[in-house]
Design a protein around this nucleic acid. Sequence first.
DNA 1: AAGTCCTGACTGACTGTTCAGTCGAGTACG
DNA 2: CGTACTCGACTGAACAGTCAGTCAGGACTT
Lengths: 205, 205
Amino acid sequence: MTTTSPEGRQQSDVRRDQMLVAAAELIAERGFERTRIADVAKRIETSPALVMYYFATKDELLTAALRHSEAAFYRAAEELLDKPGTLDKRLSKLVDMTFDSKTKEEFAGAWGLWFELWCQAFKHPQVAQDRRELDQQWRDLITRVVQAGIDAGELSDTDVEQFAVEWAALLDGLSVQVALDDPRVDTKRAKRIAMDFARRALNLT
Amino acid sequence: MTTTSPEGRQQSDVRRDQMLVAAAELIAERGFERTRIADVAKRIETSPALVMYYFATKDELLTAALRHSEAAFYRAAEELLDKPGTLDKRLSKLVDMTFDSKTKEEFAGAWGLWFELWCQAFKHPQVAQDRRELDQQWRDLITRVVQAGIDAGELSDTDVEQFAVEWAALLDGLSVQVALDDPRVDTKRAKRIAMDFARRALNLT
DNA sequence: AAGTCCTGACTGACTGTTCAGTCGAGTACG
DNA sequence: CGTACTCGACTGAACAGTCAGTCAGGACTT
């Protein structure tokens, strides 16, 4: 039998995924430009030729890998927010995700990926487009969470979109400091700043 | 005669500077890894070998170039803040610098440089160290400006350091959005958000 | 002559990509 | 059932281009 997981998952799909994951890891570790197809191949124990068999060019593989892990991050956030809770708790979860999960194994070195994504986006319009969409989803997520709070009467009406833009920017900026080990901004302080800002902006207790 | 500018500036110093500037431009345009010594040489119309004559390795040249233009940016900010003015005006100048000057010719594509710096800092501890120092200078600059305002009685006493950290992070985050052409965050809006935040945080009219 | 600045020609290592061909599993056919 | 054929997954080896770094020497200054 050809290895197929429960639901008709083809060997080829598995391979593709393996390659995308391996590539993302490598990008995070060494950077986009320094990631060699040979490295990706070695990590999943195959030949470079096979990588080319699945992806026409190196660039296609690497940009796909970036998209793949962006999407994974966003999906994780969506799931996390499925479960209901108070507005404060849910915002807190988003903050935790931003500053913690990027450190976890599953998103190994996601900080590095984030930076690489920005670098590539600055040069390749297509990547930039993808990033914009991802960021919009992220802000929409924030918007939805806050709106749910308003609907539940947890806070008075506010300009939700405006808050989402400001808060998302603040989170990005703090992420940079935390990722680069700024002695003045560790994870804990970043979280507090983020939550304080949110509570103040939204007039939460 | 060896071309010497007014103040005993050696030809060699001129060359070094030319190379650093050219390298920084190229890094901003193509990225750190994609910048070739041959490109740098061509831009200043010499041979690749001469570049190697001044810099032992490619890496040394490129990281020096990053440092060089970071320092240039910071120096420009310092000068800008030499002239006195109301607190609000001076903060406004910082904001303008952040969102405009990076676009100007002199700092051609400084956005790109910023991203590249973050990428490199994430991987090379030495670069990370440099970046931390630069960022600290930047926050100190903010601190000094605000403190001057307090001393002049323009605002009541506040936690200046805390403000500097928060505001610097916000500026970074907004920079990312602006640099990557986010449709929801153009230069104008970014500036307004930044100034609104500052005025609110500092209780300015 | 000594020293500085500079160059063209070269090389060795690396790496994306191609290609001819292997292997095993299915499948049609007699 | 067995044989021939197809096809997708996969590989080793080679190709062709790129590029950092070297080197021997030239020109110009002091």
